[in-house]
Design a protein around this nucleic acid. Sequence first.
DNA 1: CCAGACGTTGTT
DNA 2: GTCTGG
DNA 3: CCAGACGTTGTT
DNA 4: GTCTGG
Length: 241
Amino acid sequence: MCGRFGLYLPAQTIASFFLILNEPDHPPRYNIAPTQPVLAVFQSPAGRRGVPMRWGLIPHWARDIKIGAKLANARSETLHEKPSFRTAFNRRRCLIPADGFYEWVAVKGRKQPYFIRRRDGNPLAFAGLWEVWVAADQSELVSCTIVTTAANREMTPVHHRMPVILEPGQFDRWLDPDNQNPRSLCDLMRPMRDGGLVLQAVDDYVNRTGNEGPRCIEPAATFPTPSSPPEPPAQMNLFED
DNA sequence: CCAGACGTTGTT
DNA sequence: GTCTGG
DNA sequence: CCAGACGTTGTT
DNA sequence: GTCTGG
């Protein structure tokens, strides 16, 4: 899954990789958590735009904002049927740029964080959905969620789920609001190709959401990066995925 | 009909 | 808003 | 995702 | 143990 990530490359780099019209200024972030603002890219009539959105999708019918904290991720397998996601899946798809994301692996009573990046150094493009929510005072809040799928080869040692990561050649198909072909969209909901990611054990400074800065991705002193799958999960879920 | 849920993750 | 459960 | 709180009263 | 906040 994806419950924490970083985005620290400069706005110009992000704008050119995602081919967005504007160059939305964003502070370098190494420790983005659910409920915080993220940069989302969506297709406007004039072209792709990058805008800040609250991470954790708040359905338009929600009574209050709290539900968003639980909807930071959306399973790709059921997007089309879940009341919380299906309207956004039809018309409001987006990309969420990231330099890398974190996963925690429980080892001997503690949790070891890993930072996961593209091997080629490019930003990651998470598949996402977005929604507008109107609060009681009529103010509008735009929020988004990150779509998940099964783990690829590199991710399997640390977790059985991962975010859907799209390639530039797939951006248009995912973002086009007029694309309502479920087959065309579902074909994109695949684990990233094997070999495209690298993992690095990092300092547990990142655990605390209030901690920020490059120290979050500082390699851990005592834990090597797993070159091959270090150990399979103790329990395998035999019923899903 | 109305009331209540609407989600993912991990863990046991 | 829309579906499910009662 | 992890960390941290987890309560009521009255008063400003 | 479970929920909230970030």
